[in-house]
Simulated scan of single mutants.
Amino acid sequence: MGNIPGMQKGPFRNRSPLVLASGSPRRRELLSDLGLTFDVHPSPLEEPLPGPGESPASYVLRMAELKTLDVAARFRGATIIGADTAVVLGDRIMGKPRSRLDALEMLTTLSGATHQVVSGFCVVLPDGKTVSEAVSTDVDMRVSTEGELMSYIETGEPMDKAGAYAIQGVGTFLVTAIRGSYTNVVGLPVARVLEVLTATGCVEPRMPSDG
């Protein structure tokens, strides 16, 4: 896929080639909003299920590292960013629904409850060093009727989303409050990832003279 230009007036610019190891349009938009330019090359690897007793944070970190390192092997000398997001209620890790009935079951379980959205990100630096971390956000959901949930599912939005909802889309009506990073719920903890990118010199503020 060709280079994705950042916003012309975005506040940052990357100092080295940047690759997003994810096909998520949400993650693509979050990086583009910063003003960064990057290529998109999702990893073709299939995601294994969580291991017995594996914590949500360990699982999303393992998935993020698996996909990012796979892409990094093909783009040496570039900065590679990958991530994986899971919706967690108690000890249950919710991925993307397999069917509409599965989506209804997930949304019914989440209705009226507080769950966590855990995103693991992995950054492979141009020198090959790796930085990875998991970030968690608490999300409170309103009590929704089965009719409301079925109508939401009919929009099609839940079918490719972890936990069967999108906080940045139609599914915003389901959420009453969050505690933590909003962009983490979208799929990438932007503030923390940006800290890593600026601290390592991969990204810097865009000066007025840069245009």
Rank of each mutant, 00 (worst) to 15 (best):
S55A: 14
A78V: 00
F75N: 02
K129T: 11
A64Q: 04
V117S: 04
M150G: 02
F75Y: 13
S136R: 11
V131I: 09
A86D: 05
T130H: 04
A64H: 05
A83V: 06
L110Y: 08
S132Q: 06
L89T: 00
E154F: 08
M63P: 02
T108K: 15
Y165T: 00
G169C: 05
A164Q: 00
S144C: 15
P50N: 12
Q116M: 12
G163H: 03
K67E: 02
H115Y: 14
S58T: 06
P158W: 11
A86I: 13
D102A: 10
G147K: 15
A57D: 11
C122I: 06
D70C: 06
I153S: 00
I80Y: 02
V170Y: 14
L89K: 04
S55M: 08
G171T: 14
L66Q: 07
V60D: 00
G128A: 02
G112V: 04
A64W: 07
M159T: 04
E154Q: 13
R76C: 10
G51D: 13
P97Y: 10
D160Q: 08
S136T: 14
M141C: 08
S55K: 14
K96V: 04
L69Q: 08
A166V: 01
G163A: 02
T137Q: 07
L104I: 15
T85M: 07
G120K: 04
G120M: 08
D102I: 12
A64P: 05
V170A: 13
R62G: 10
M150W: 07
R76V: 08
A72M: 03
E105F: 05
L69F: 01
E105L: 10
A73M: 08
D127N: 15
I80N: 03
L89P: 00
G147P: 01
S111W: 15
V139C: 05
S136E: 13
T68R: 05
L104K: 04
S151T: 13
Q168H: 13
D91M: 02
G82E: 04
S119L: 11
M106D: 02
Y59G: 02
M141E: 02
